[in-house]
Amino acid sequence: MTGRIDVGIADDHDLFREGLVALLGRDSRLRVVGQASDSHGALELVRARHPLVLLLDVSMPGDPARMTIARVKRMQPDLRVVVLTMHQDVRLQSELLAAGASAYLTKTAPSSDVVAAILHAATTDSPQIPPGAEEGHSDLLSEREYAVLRLIAQAYSNKEIGAELSIAEGTVKRHANNINIKLGATSRIDAVRKATRLGILPSQATLG
């Protein structure tokens, strides 16, 4: 990547936001192009300033973070969203990464991690999974749900999965529904895609 990376900051705490502006201003690779203090402002920031990376606080006034991520990604598909939050929550992390965030950092992370997350997001399509998070992602699904998902990824039908795992076809359907709920997926293919993005499934396990 050539030139500086344009960054937007959306956080409702003025002091924290100003600290981020000062931090990023010390790095010649980065340029802060706009700030916002709520979800509506984040949308306007993206619409007006077109940052490549948006630092997004989870607990801002307005719409939930997942909805804001979906909206800004529809508005600017190449936008990378780095989530900043006080919540060390594996399920929330999984939900926001599945919604399209490129990284999930707690506000207790060192400043070097914030810069590294921005640089990673700007140069790759793969989400950045924090150290130790892979174990948390695996724990998102039960052992049986994971087994069902692996077979779904191999294009097995519900009947074939039931025969393979020695469970009833109705049980397979129930597991598949639970998988969709936990991953925020709308279909079998979407579940595999989101599980692959989260590192629950290896990339080669993806359906077409």
Results as ranks from 00 to 15, higher is better:
Q154G: 12
L149G: 03
A117W: 08
Y156R: 01
V33R: 02
V72N: 03
D125M: 08
R29G: 09
S39T: 13
T106S: 02
Y146E: 14
P130W: 11
E95R: 15
A117H: 08
R26L: 12
R197I: 05
A205E: 03
L96R: 04
E160Q: 04
A121V: 00
P202R: 11
N178T: 09
Y146M: 11
G162F: 02
A48Q: 13
L207H: 05
Q35A: 00
A103V: 03
I167A: 05
P61D: 14
A195D: 08
A22L: 15
A10K: 08
A163I: 07
I9L: 12
D63W: 12
L54K: 13
A168M: 04
Q35C: 00
R31N: 12
A103D: 10
V114M: 14
L105I: 04
S138Q: 14
P51K: 01
E135V: 15
D63G: 06
V72A: 03
G3I: 01
V7C: 09
L140M: 02
L45T: 06
S39H: 05
L149H: 04
G25C: 11
D190Q: 13
A153G: 15
A109N: 13
A70S: 15
V7D: 03
H87T: 05
M75T: 04
G8Q: 01
A116M: 10
R71I: 00
L96M: 07
G8S: 01
A103H: 04
L183N: 10
T186Y: 15
L105T: 04
R144Q: 13
L119C: 02
P202M: 04
V7P: 07
S102K: 05
E143A: 10
A70E: 15
A116E: 12
H120Q: 09
H137A: 10
P130A: 15
S112I: 11
A117K: 09
P131T: 09
G162T: 01
A155K: 14
G170I: 03
L30T: 08
Q93E: 08
K182D: 09
L45C: 02
D78A: 05
V83I: 13
T2G: 13
L20M: 14
V115E: 01
R71C: 06
L56T: 14
V72C: 05
S166E: 03
R144M: 12
S39C: 11
I200F: 09
M1N: 06
K159R: 13
S203A: 11
V32L: 09
D113W: 10
G136Q: 07
L54G: 12
G136R: 03
T106H: 01
A147Q: 02
L151N: 03
H137P: 02
G34K: 10
I9K: 09
G132K: 05
A109S: 15
G62Q: 01
V81W: 11
E135I: 14
Q35D: 00
L165F: 06
Q128E: 12
A147R: 00
R174S: 07
R17C: 00
N180A: 07
L30N: 04
I118S: 14
P110I: 00
V82I: 09
A36N: 04
S39Y: 07
K159Q: 12
L45D: 01
R150S: 15
L96F: 01
G170R: 10
G208K: 09
